[in-house]
Structures are given as C-alpha cells and as structure tokens.
Design a protein around this nucleic acid. Structure first.
Lengths: 239, 239
DNA sequence: CGAGTACTTGACTGTGGTCAAAGCCAGTGG
DNA sequence: CCACTGGCTTTGACCACAGTCAAGTACTCG
C-alpha cells in the first residue's frame, strides 16, 4: 500500500525493514475522494496527515479577486501534508484534482516515530524539505521564466517525479489537470495557457491533451525549461 | 548570542532550559561576512548549517539569461540553511546582503539533537516548515499579486518578522536591500521597482529609502497587500 | 573632490491579461 | 439515435502592466 512512498524514500536513502514496518504502521484508515474536492481548509486544527496513495492533489491559496495560485502538486506516494505535523494547521487549502485514495496518518503515531526512530524522523523531515525545494524552483519559474519556459519546466518536473514512482516514461504520462488548473500552477490565465500549449505542440516538443501528456522531445523540452533536476535530490545519500 | 533564535522559537512553543542549553551548545564558531558575499554555493557538500546572528542574507537562483530570483530573505535569529542538515547540499546559493555575523552549527551536533531531544527536533523541523510556508506565500505573490500589492506584501512580511525579534515597530525598520535586490525578491526589474516604490510613497503608505523603511499607514498597507499573517504561524502551540 | 554605485525618469515595446464568442466533446435523458 | 447540457478548449481583437533601453541625477565613501 505504501510502496510508492517507499520507492520515493529508497531513492534517497536506505530504509531498514523496521523502518518500512513503522511507516506501514503509521496508516490508520484509507479514504477515497472524488475529483475537485477540498479536503483540508486553511486554518483548521489538524491532528492527522494525509499520505496520497493514488491520484493527484494540490495545495492552493486564493486572493480576494478570485485569482488562485496552486503552490504545489502532489502525486502518488507523496506525504501531502506531513508539514501539518509540526504546524498543527495549514496556511492553504488542499484539494483533489482527480479521484484519489488517501491514507490517514494520526499525528500521535508520527510523534512516536520522532521519539523512537531518529533516522526515520530525519527522512520524513527530509521529505518536507524536498517540498520546500520544489517551492523554491516554482518561485524561480513564477518570478523569472517566461510562460513558455515555465510551462515546459512544469512538465519536466512532473515527468521526473512520476517516473520515480513508475508512472511516467520519457515519452509521457497521464495527467488529470485541465488547462485552467495548469494555468493556476503557473501564474497565468487559462487563455494564455492554451496559447502556450499550442506553441509547445507546434514546436514538436510536447502535446498536452485532455488526460495525457505526450512528450515528443524530452531533452529539447528540458533545454527550453532550463530544467536542472538538482532540486529534486534524486541521489542516494544517508540523511 | 542565540537570543533572537530563542525569541522566535518561544513565540511558537515553550522551550525548556535544557533545550535552550542544547541550542546554545550547537554553535561551534562565529564567523563574519561582508555585504554581498556568496557564502554557500549550489551543490557543495555541506556538513554544517548557518545560524544568522546579525544582518540580512538571502537565498537565490540564477537563470542563464542573467535574471536572478531571490527565493527567501533571512534576518537575525533565522537558521538560514537548517534544511541542509537533511538535504546535505543546497539547490540554491546563499549570499549576505549586509555585513553579517553567523554561527556555524556542525551537522553532527544536530544529529545528536535528533537522537536525544525529540521535542527540540520537532521545533527545528517546524522552523524549516515555516520557511516552506513563506515560500508558498511568495509563490502566491509572484503568481497572482500585482507588482504594487506584491511589494506592499513583502514590506508587511518583513515588518512582522522583524518585530518578532525586536527589530521593527509599526512605524518601520532598517533595511539594507537596494532596489535591485528588492526587485529580485519580487520578480520584477529594478526600473519597475523604482516606479512602484514611488507609487507607494505618493499614496502615503510607505517610504523605502536607502537604509530605512518608514511605514506611514501599516493597516492600509496590509489591506493593499491582502496581508494575512496566518502563514507566519505566530501563535503559541505545542509542536 | 572624484569615482562608483544607486536611483530616477522618459519613450517605446512586448508579454500576457481581458472580454467575448464559438467550437468541441462526453455523458445523459428522451 | 439524437438533442441537450455543461465543462473544457480554442480563437480573435484589444488593452495594460511591466520590461527594455538609454540617459541623467544624486548619493556615499575614500
């Protein structure tokens, strides 16, 4: 059930059997959500975290004028609000973008990990730091990349992250975001998103369709995006 | 020496004397840096973290075309690359923006904290999660706020953070960023930064001068910025 | 007092936003 | 089988916020 989480962690450090068992033991119950359901609201008191088993979720913030910024996308295997363990409430909403399957992890169980399993604690800490690294890369995109390069970058990031858990190849992956949601990740309007996707398609780089991303030339796409996966910390080092 | 760090942490949770002593014992040596010196480079192997005692530092990423995005600002009391403890190298550069005084914290000492002091570990974990929360708010700014509101927001954030460690009042604070550096935080050019600062001054909201920020009307400034300090987690809760 | 850095302004340009309408497609019900 | 619906995508015309380029001014500090 937590294989995808294990895949992600094992890509970064060795996990003992005891640690894998402890991770499996974190899970209390499994819950299903339909697409486009807000599952956590900003400011709620939280005593559990969510581990995403299947589907896509996002975190977002809204402005009064109705504009929305998605600050992170989460895929299968992501501990999507592990940070609520230390924060106790969130500064943003969390929403499903596709039908999802989620494991509930009570904070008391995470507390026990921090009391007894320091190495596993550091690994979990690492994964929240990894989220922060992705935030920083998105800040760079939002602040300095053009809409075209920014869009290419998001596709490269998703390709790399999905490939790690076996959900993408160099030729593409399934996607459940519509153009409005992509635009909300990238800080542009859905109208402009549409124009940019046409440009990427006409340049024979990538075709983003309803439910599928077909990559025609990954290395050219990565060059356009100045995609450097350093920030995903894909190498294996003891934490 | 670590009073400002303690101020920050105590604003969020109770610290025992033993924990305060452990924090003080983290520090190995003190180092001074001049303004505008890059002190950590992307990708370097790291076995220590830096605790900022005085001055202002930033983390930034560059694009090939020379454009730079500052992804975070750090002030006195900030553990500015605590995340390198689990990441082991950084995805960005770290630079001083003013003359700074920094405490060096070897990772082996942090390791000992994680082995023996779970509550303090959670507090340190919290502070990296707080950095991530600020990243998310900056993503919202960069993606959705106008240059004017974004600029106002940065000033509100700095005011709140500096006030917490006794370095700002509601009337303003000292600043050591020039307009180019402010622009690099905000994803705009220095020319446009200048025009925006004029607009803020002419609207009698805030005057940003060489080394000083004078706030004329904090609550109007906060309204313009849609500043909601939730994301700074300023309330006191057990972690 | 001179040099260098930082700030300021103007004229022009361009990326991306806005508004509006039309097309497309899958699913639903008659 | 077809009409209808609603969500999503596509396109066009026009606009505005912010970028670019260039020149000039004002500080600061040695």
């Amino acid at each position: 059930m937590i294989e995808k989480l294990l895949l992600k962690l094992q890509a970064r450090d060795a996990i003992t059997d005891a640690e894998a068992a402890a991770l499996a033991g974190l899970v209390d119950e499994i819950r299903l959500f339909p697409a486009r359901k807000t599952v956590i609201r900003k400011g709620e008191d939280l005593d559990q975290s969510l581990l995403l088993l299947d589907g896509v979720m996002c975190r977002y913030k809204d402005l009064r004028n109705g504009r929305r910024q998605i600050s992170a996308l989460h895929i299968a295997g992501d501990f999507l609000d592990l940070h609520s363990f230390t924060l106790k409430r969130l500064d943003h909403d969390v929403m499903s973008l596709s039908p999802t399957r989620v494991a509930i992890v009570p904070h008391v169980r995470l507390m026990r990990v921090t009391e007894a399993l320091p190495h596993l604690t550091r690994l979990l800490w690492f994964s929240t730091n990894l989220d922060a690294a992705m935030h920083r890369e998105w800040e760079l995109s939002l602040g300095q990349r053009t809409a075209l390069s920014r869009s290419a970058h998001l596709i490269c990031e998703l390709q790399a992250r999905l490939q790690l858990v076996g959900l993408a190849t160099e030729a593409g992956f399934d996607l459940t975001l519509n153009q409005t949601e992509l635009a909300e990740c990238l800080g542009i309007t859905s109208v402009h998103m549409n124009r940019v996707l046409r440009e990427l398609r006409e340049a024979d780089l990538v075709t983003v369709r309803s439910r599928q991303v077909v990559i025609h030339d990954l290395s050219r796409l990565q060059r356009l995006a100045e995609f450097d996966p350093t920030y995903l910390y894909l190498d294996r080092r003891p934490r």
